[in-house]
Design a protein around this nucleic acid. Structure first.
Lengths: 212, 212
DNA sequence: CCGCGATGTATCGGACCGATACATCGCACG
DNA sequence: CGTGCGATGTATCGGTCCGATACATCGCGG
């Protein structure tokens, strides 16, 4: 999961670890807490060993260029390689059941702008399926086993059920939008959006079309 | 976390591993997927080593009928000990910041029926605080960094923000109920509940008052 | 009588977290 | 002028938990 996110982020710009974590937090703040360095740095080394990213010292390696108003100390800047981009595309294409759990889905969704429409649809529908199953499980418990559980546990289930129903509806909307080729959260024309500025094109292609 | 849940469940009845997992799934289905056996069994052994649970063979031990080869594998039934109950109470009393993240909060909440009111209140307020912080972070990103992010990422943040606001409201209700001594999800008298049967007393004491 | 799904116990590699350590930089405050 | 302090930055370690896998028993229908 983290591997996927790093590969995705480094395609926007080369970064060092600390920066990577901040960007990760900004992008994934809705679905998970800040990533731990205890995970980040070992993962970076793993990706580097696999040849998917390369390490470049932050200090002016190319002689006099970039006087660097900051840092003499080794800030290690990572850059994604061609193999890394390929790996990222492969991870998207392979997106399977593990993509449907909470974290996996969120991370993949955050990089939908780099995902082709067919895969987006597949992931959204897989996620919906999974949430529907969870919802049915909760309904079962609330219906059949209600008297076995205490009031607090029941309240927890109710809250969870509500969240499930809400997410299913959200996914339905996204799926409908996806099928009609609109951008996410782009209401069908005629409904006032409320929020004025919505740039970002209808995200038509967005596929990353590697060109060697 | 799992340790806490096991100790809590075994106070209701002795169980073997498989059963424990099913009960765990029923009770925590709203907040997390089924627990893995790769976690459950090692944890059970750890708890046993610590003296908090004891192992008892499920089959009646008829003398020296020891399984020489592939004979009847005993279902291992675990029972909580007095030390285990004490440990559970201690875990509740110590409930700190780790209790405020998604999983930690959910698990503790599921055992609120075994938690004294003061601690319930403390946990609910800590959780609310944490969600409020997450909410502010999301508002920040949506406000300040919106143009840096693509439409999908923004949609994810909006959905997350909505979930945060919803959870804060839910927590407010629970806190208000808690302060007034009502049971959870017990609307103030006068509002029709819609759901007919709501047994479970107002959960007045519910404290487990260990008596040495 | 055979297969098959539910029940049941168990291990192993790997992902990820939280605490901790340490070093540099800019700057506010005395 | 220096001094401490918060942000930046890299790194390790122990521990929790997951997912895949393996294996054994039981009841049931075909």
């Amino acid at each position: 999961m983290l591997e996927f996110a790093i590969l995705g982020l480094l395609q926007e710009a080369p970064m060092h670890g600390y920066e990577l974590r901040k960007e990760l937090t900004a992008k994934l703040g809705a679905i998970r807490a800040a990533i731990s360095y205890g995970t980040l740095y070992p993962t970076l080394r793993r990706l580097q060993a696999a040849g998917w990213i390369t390490e470049a010292d932050g200090t002016p390696a190319t002689a006099e260029e970039v006087p660097a108003l900051t840092s003499r100390r080794g800030r290690v800047v990572y850059t994604i390689t061609a193999e890394g981009k390929e790996r990222f595309a492969q991870l998207i294409a392979q997106a399977g059941p593990e993509t449907y759990d909470d974290t996996g889905f969120g991370v993949h969704f955050a990089f939908f702008a780099r995902t082709d429409q067919a895969t987006r649809l597949r992931i959204l529908e897989g996620r919906r399926r999974k949430i529907e199953e969870r919802r049915e499980g909760l309904r079962d418990v609330l219906g059949r086993a209600a008297e076995r559980l205490d009031a607090y546990t029941l309240e927890l289930q109710r809250h969870g059920l509500d969240a499930c129903e809400r997410e299913v509806r959200w996914l339905e909307e996204l799926i409908a939008n996806e099928r009609s080729g609109r951008a996410p959260a782009d209401p069908r024309p005629g409904t006032a959006g409320g929020r004025g500025d919505n740039d970002s094109p209808p995200t038509p292609g967005t596929s990353r079309t590697e060109r060697p």
